[in-house]
Simulated assay, not measured.
Amino acid sequence: MYLYKYILIFAIQLVGATACSQEHGPMVVEEEVILDQNQIDEDRIKLPDIDLSHWKVTIPEGSGKGGAISVEPPEILNYATNPVLKPFMYNDSTAGALVFHAYPSNATTANTKYSRSELREQMVPGDDNVNWTFAQGGKLKARIAMEEVTKDSEGKYHRVIILQIHGRLTNEQKERIGQSDNNAPPILKIYWQNGKIRVKTKVLKDLNASAEDILHEDAWDDDEGHTFDQEVGFKKFNIEVDVSDGKMIVSLNNTEFAVYDDIHMKKWGVFENYFKAGNYFQSRDAGSHASVKFYKLEVSH
C-alpha cells in the first residue's frame, strides 16, 4: 500500500515536470536568464556625450620638448582603441565620462614647460587655419569633474587648466609683425584650483597701443583673476562660456557669473580664437599627476 502510494506520487511529479518541459523547455528558460544578464551589463555601459569630429588632442607623449603628439580627426574618433592615446584619453564607461590624464613630461608643446592631455577645437576637421573671432561669437558648454590630483609640498592640490580660449594670429598678422608662428595669448584660462574654479583673462597694458603693437604677446598682461564662491571639489559641475562681439561671460552651474564687457574685450577682437578643453597640468613635481572627467562638451558658433 505504501509502495503504491510513493509510486503514484512520483508518477504525478514526473508528468508535471514533463508537461512543463514541453510547454516552456528548460534550455529556453536558462537562455532567457542569460540574455537578461547580458542586457543588464549593456545597460551599465555609459559613453560620454561628446562629439570629437571637430577636435584634435595633444598628449604628453613624444620626442622631447615641443615634440608632444597630436591626433586629429578622423583618427581621434578611434581613441578608445588607439594604443598611443589610451593612457591619456579614455572612457570611464561606468561614469559615462571621457577622462584626460596628464603628468610632467618632456614632451610639451611650444612656449610652455607644462604637459597636457587636451583637446583643441578645429572648425574644419584637420585644419588649424580656420578659427573664429569675437564678432562671430562662440559658446561652450561642459560638464566636468576632477577625478584625482596630487598635492604639492605644502599640501595644496596641483592646479589644472580645464578650459581655455586661445588667441591665434592669421598668417597675414604673423608676417606683419615678423613672428615665426601663429601663436597669440590665451584670452581665457579656467582653472580647477584647490577645489574651486578660477578664471583668468588678459588685459591690454597700453590702451593707446597701435593696431600692430596689439598683435604682440607682450602687449597683454594677466588680469587679477576671479575665483567663484562655490566649492566644486571632486563633484560634477557645469561651465558655460559665451563669447560675443566685445564681451565674454563665464558661468558656473548657472548660478555664478563672471562678465567681461570692457575695452580689453573689444580690443581683443583683432585676434582669431579657438576653444581648448581637457587637462593642462600645471606642475613639474616628480610623481605628480591629475585626471579630469568630461561628461559633456558642446561648442557652437
Rank of each mutant, 00 (worst) to 15 (best):
V28K: 12
P186C: 03
R44H: 14
E32M: 07
V299D: 01
H101S: 12
E147F: 04
K174A: 09
F228W: 09
D92C: 12
G66Q: 10
R116S: 03
E118V: 02
A97D: 05
N253R: 03
A68R: 02
A68D: 07
D41K: 06
S63N: 13
I190W: 00
F228M: 06
T81A: 07
G96R: 04
N82T: 11
H158K: 08
Q164D: 13
W192P: 05
G225M: 06
A68Q: 11
K200M: 12
K174W: 02
D218K: 11
A219G: 05
I7F: 11
P26W: 13
Y260M: 14
K5P: 00
S115T: 15
L169H: 05
E231K: 15
Q37K: 15
S288C: 02
V84C: 02
K65A: 08
L169D: 01
D242I: 14
F275N: 02
V259C: 03
I263Y: 06
K267G: 08
F271Y: 15
A95N: 10
L252K: 10
N238Q: 09
N82C: 06
Y90V: 02
W55S: 13
L52V: 09
D218C: 01
A184L: 01
V241A: 07
D36Y: 14
E298N: 12
V292P: 06
E118H: 02
A95Y: 05
T170F: 04
Y191M: 01
I197L: 00
P104G: 06
T170H: 01
G155F: 09
L297S: 03
G62A: 11
E217Q: 14
G66W: 08
D128W: 00
D285E: 11
G137A: 05
D223Y: 05
A135Q: 15
I144E: 07
V160E: 06
L215G: 11
L140V: 12
Y103H: 12
A258R: 06
D206N: 15
K5Y: 15
Y191L: 05
K174T: 14
L207Q: 14
I177R: 06
G225H: 09
G167K: 07
F10M: 06
H166N: 10
V130D: 04
V57T: 13
A19N: 09
I249R: 14
A17S: 09
P87A: 07
I144K: 01
D218I: 06
I7T: 15
W132A: 06
N208I: 04
H264W: 09
G64V: 08
E72L: 04
T170L: 04
I7C: 11
K200D: 13
K267R: 15
H226D: 00
H226I: 13
Y191Q: 05
P26C: 07
E272S: 04
R159Y: 00
F294L: 11
A97E: 08
G167N: 06
L14W: 10
L140T: 04
P60G: 11
R168Y: 09
P186W: 04
Q13I: 12
F271K: 14
Q230H: 07
